[in-house]
C-alpha cells in the first residue's frame, strides 16, 4: 500500500512538480484577481499569474542533463583561429582574392564540432518569455498609471467604495 502510494506520489507529483506549482501559482493569482478588493492587490495577483505562465513555458523547455543554451565556443574558437591563421597566410602568399575560399574553409571547421540538440536546453521558450517579461512590466506600468488616476478621481483604491461612488454620482446626475 505504502509502496503503491509512494509510486503514485512520484508518478503524479514529483515528475510534474514544476507544473503542479505553476498551476497552483496560477490559481493563487486568478483568485486574487477575482476576489481581492484593492486594485494594487489585483495587480500583484496579475503579475503572479503571469510569472506562473512563464514558469510553465520554461519548465516545458528543460532537458535532463542539458546545459544552458550557449554553445561551448572555446574549442570552436581555437579551431576558427587556427583556420583563420592558415587562411591569412594563404592570403598573404597568393593575394586578396581568396576571401571566399577562406570562408568556405571556415564552414567545415564548424561542422567538425558536432552539436547534439539534447545537450542544450530548448532556447525557443526562453526567447518568447524574455520578451514577455519586459512587455509585462510595461503593461504593469500602464495599469499602475490607471490606478493613480482612479485614486486621483475617487480618493480610494478599494473596488466597492469606487462602485458606491459611481452609483451615487449616477443617482445625483
Amino acid at each position: 500500500m505504502s509502496v503503491m502510494g509512494s509510486f503514485i506520489i512520484s508518478q503524479y507529483v514529483l515528475d510534474h512538480f514544476n507544473f503542479w506549482v505553476a498551476v497552483i501559482l496560477m490559481m493563487i493569482g486568478l483568485y486574487a484577481m477575482i476576489t481581492k478588493n484593492n486594485l494594487i492587490k489585483k495587480l500583484i495577483g496579475m503579475s503572479i499569474f503571469q510569472t506562473a505562465i512563464i514558469l510553465f513555458y520554461v519548465s516545458a523547455g528543460v532537458k535532463e542533463g542539458a546545459t544552458i543554451p550557449i554553445l561551448e565556443h572555446h574549442a570552436a574558437e581555437t579551431e576558427q583561429v587556427a583556420a583563420g591563421d592558415a587562411g591569412a597566410e594563404h592570403g598573404s602568399v597568393v593575394g586578396a582574392d581568396h576571401d571566399v575560399s577562406k570562408s568556405s574553409e571556415k564552414a567545415p571547421a564548424h561542422e567538425v564540432h558536432e552539436i547534439n540538440p539534447d545537450d542544450y536546453s530548448n532556447p525557443l521558450p526562453h526567447v518568447l518569455m524574455l520578451t514577455a517579461i519586459v512587455v509585462g512590466v510595461a503593461t504593469l506600468g500602464v495599469a499602475l498609471a490607471v490606478a493613480q488616476v482612479i485614486y486621483k478621481n475617487y480618493g480610494t483604491l478599494e473596488e466597492d467604495e469606487i462602485l458606491a461612488k459611481i452609483k451615487a454620482a449616477e443617482n445625483d446626475g
Binding site: 510534474h16 528543460v62 532537458k63 542533463g65
Partner: peptide, 11 residues
C-alpha cells in the same frame, strides 16, 4: 511530458 524529458513534443 515528464520533467526534463528531452524527447517531449516541445523539445
Amino acid at each position: 511530458p515528464n520533467w526534463g524529458d528531452a524527447h517531449s513534443p516541445a523539445n
